[in-house]
Design a protein around this nucleic acid. Structure first.
Lengths: 193, 193
DNA sequence: GTTTGTCAATCAAGCACTTGATGGATACAG
DNA sequence: CTGTATCCATCAAGTGCTTGATTGACAAAC
């Protein structure tokens, strides 16, 4: 393949290919083993071509972060719905995504570790966690006020507990699907009146 | 400083110095930025000297892993104690350590991320988690059987939930100490009869 | 005199990134 | 249509620096 333009893909498609390959590489090797040349090789392009699309390694990583974070859901809470059902659905939804989109969660795991020493990244992750908490908290408030959840339930604490448990699944290697399901059921029993 | 033996420290002390410096480096920069040269510089020795004590980078990392994991507590459960008090104490104990020994927990965070792609390391971490679960589960069993905890409490699930929450503190950047305390209190209310 | 701990100097490999050139596509002038 | 100027995407071949590890010598301790 000579130097001229040969491939049938345009810039946007190419960048998407590169980001996908980068995400895969990070999920497989972590940031520790993340090499831009490997990404280029996987896409089948020259390193210089990759650097044409993403000037630096950090710019490529930023694109991966944006894709992962942008792909997290931001469903608004419907106040008329049954809080117990909403909570059940939410747990099931996250656990389902955890199964089907494992690669993204593996990268998210790496990102959280990196966030411990990268303030810019941490800001992004915190903003995301706050959006998650802002979704979940009203569910507990409504459930408590409607008398379906315990009267002494602390919505902030319950939110932190549920989010914490779900996030911890990223590195609970010894947790079987069965045990995860039973823990989700336990959460429901623990909050109910 | 000529080539001869000059320092007043013996091999064991030197190795301890190196491991401590390595732990600090990993906590600060992650495995991504972990360089044996930097460790040697921090200790104030030549790279060759470091390689004399730890033949490879991996051997040094293994020593750090051993120190961190070996330092985790393995307190046996006293069946005669009040399960509520044991749980309260355990939560307080872990949260306290989380404050005073943050560096070790930061490294632990890195280790869990690495465990996702290093089977040998994962085995160590899983064994450790199982020991932790084996400590906590009997507390819930006893509490339930004594009628102090809910009769429908699932000890396995409660164990997973508590361990998950505590592990998630490693990357819950937006959680204030106050909110953590309230979440610990919520855990107690959630299991009580 | 052997073992232990240390250093200066060095190496091969690996790394992100650059340079300079090239061919295809597109648009516009004549 | 045809010539040509311009832009996009690409590559081969580096550049300079970093990194884990080695070598060989040397001195103190035992």
């Amino acid at each position: 393949m000579p130097a001229g333009r040969r491939s049938g893909v345009d810039g946007e498609q190419r960048r998407a290919q590169i980001v996908t390959a980068a995400q895969h590489a990070i999920a497989t090797l972590g940031f520790e083993g993340f090499r831009v040349r490997d990404v280029a090789a996987q896409v089948g392009i020259n390193i210089a071509t990759l650097h044409y699309h993403f000037p630096t390694k950090e710019a490529l990583i930023a694109a991966v972060v944006q894709q992962i974070v942008g792909n997290l859901d931001r469903v608004p809470y419907d106040p008329s719905a049954d809080p117990r059902q909403v909570l059940t659905d939410h747990l099931g939804h996250i656990l389902g995504r955890f199964d089907t989109e494992r690669e993204q969660f593996l990268v998210l795991n790496e990102l959280y570790a990196r966030g411990g020493r990268d303030p810019e990244l941490r800001t992004i992750l915190v903003a995301n966690d706050e959006a998650w908490a802002d979704y979940l908290r009203p569910v507990f408030v409504a459930g408590r006020d409607q008398g379906r959840f315990r009267a002494d339930l602390d919505p902030d604490a319950a939110t932190a507990l549920v989010i914490g448990f779900l996030k911890s699944l990223l590195f609970q290697y010894d947790l079987t699907p069965d045990r995860i399901q039973r823990t989700a059921a336990e959460i429901l029993r623990a909050v109910e009146a």
